[in-house]
Design a protein around this nucleic acid. Sequence first.
DNA 1: CGACAAGTTGAATTGTATCAAGAATGGTGG
DNA 2: CCACCATTCTTGATACAATTCAACTTGTCG
Lengths: 236, 236
Amino acid sequence: MQNPSWKMTGESDCLLCPMRQLSIFAGLTIEDLSPLGMVVEDIHLPAGATLYRQGENARYAFTLRSGAMKLSVHRRHQDENRIVRLLRYGDLLGFEGLNQARLHYQHTATALDASDLCLLDLTALNRLSEDRPKVRQALIGRWQSALEEAEFQLVEIGAGKAEACVAAFLCHWCRVFPDGAWVPFPIERKELADYLGFSAAHVSRVMADFKRNGYVKESGKRINIQYIPLRRIAGA
Amino acid sequence: MQNPSWKMTGESDCLLCPMRQLSIFAGLTIEDLSPLGMVVEDIHLPAGATLYRQGENARYAFTLRSGAMKLSVHRRHQDENRIVRLLRYGDLLGFEGLNQARLHYQHTATALDASDLCLLDLTALNRLSEDRPKVRQALIGRWQSALEEAEFQLVEIGAGKAEACVAAFLCHWCRVFPDGAWVPFPIERKELADYLGFSAAHVSRVMADFKRNGYVKESGKRINIQYIPLRRIAGA
DNA sequence: CGACAAGTTGAATTGTATCAAGAATGGTGG
DNA sequence: CCACCATTCTTGATACAATTCAACTTGTCG
């Protein structure tokens, strides 16, 4: 594996990982993990770096331990990129090669922010999934949540006016944080626009309006939702 | 199970099913299926009937054997329905309750056309999936294709001008048929609009234009793609 | 044939893209 | 710490795309 944008930062012990309860190895003991030769490497990506590209041979899956990433696809007959998913702490990516059905990555994975990931060999993961029902359940859960996320995007974001889409996205993005918290927001206007399917200029307009109206505050790469009158915006 | 819109039409022998190669039981023998008490009922739905509703308790999954169905969700703060997926011959639906994680249907399933389905008990299917790697693989494959379908909708249909979206959808809908074939098309303008995220009036305009330009022909509930200049439409 | 649902079309209005200019921001080297 | 650069963000004017509402046409089925 020789990707110039990767920086190996050593091996990790999954059993000591602080995010293990969120990961696909949640609930496994050392007896489950060690005999299978599951070597896990840590890698670090600077903001803007590409982890893998759509169409490349898929040999590894990744768990995002910190930072944020986007998955995008190249559109046929179109130069723009469509962002298919935004990922944060605890998310799994690059697992389209599991099931042996897809040998290539379906997306291009790019770091939105400096990110740490751990790297999982797909062959070993497949074996592990066969032998350990808990791993299997966890992986199926990942498919399920990827599907739910895609449907969220279709339903809440894929149609309607820009105001409603932006509002729905902001609430969704901040949902795991307490109300009123300052939430990391390493997403540029252009990227948000690619994700929502609007132009960067228009997304900027909507965000600026929201800030003027006091719905949200922004400072550096963090955002703070004060109060978004979802009902009023959507009901328009 | 007492749903007034269902009509049980008897039990089926999965081993004799003409669509078994497409189903999740492909590759299984009678030894695989019979000992698990997997009873399969057939049901018939008239056009417009509802198979299940979003939020209902999920006890069964279904395989669509003929006809066509739509999966839709109710939007918060919005009266319109968004169509999340269109299903045809061989598709599996209602399997969100597998993995024990989701006990309720996530969508409302409605027949677009008179449809035949077979009904699979989720508990039995779960057991079968635990014991039979082939079934498990097949189910994972269904998740994968559901996810791919959702991403197709996001990427090819969820953004861009209405002409391009309609064109992409028509090509996608007809993809499994030979070029130039008359393809069943039991989708009303309003439904197509809900699926694509446009108004019925505008979809109608686009379709009418396509017909005037000779890109497609329509007759009854069937459609015939002559030639759609995808590149020109998208390149605008 | 009549009645009702679905499709088509027009005109006015709203929403969004595009292009371009100016303002804010972040990072860099002195 | 500041000046400078490059990038991103904001904003305005204009053109285009889509919605809405309503009238009208076509299709379907009893």
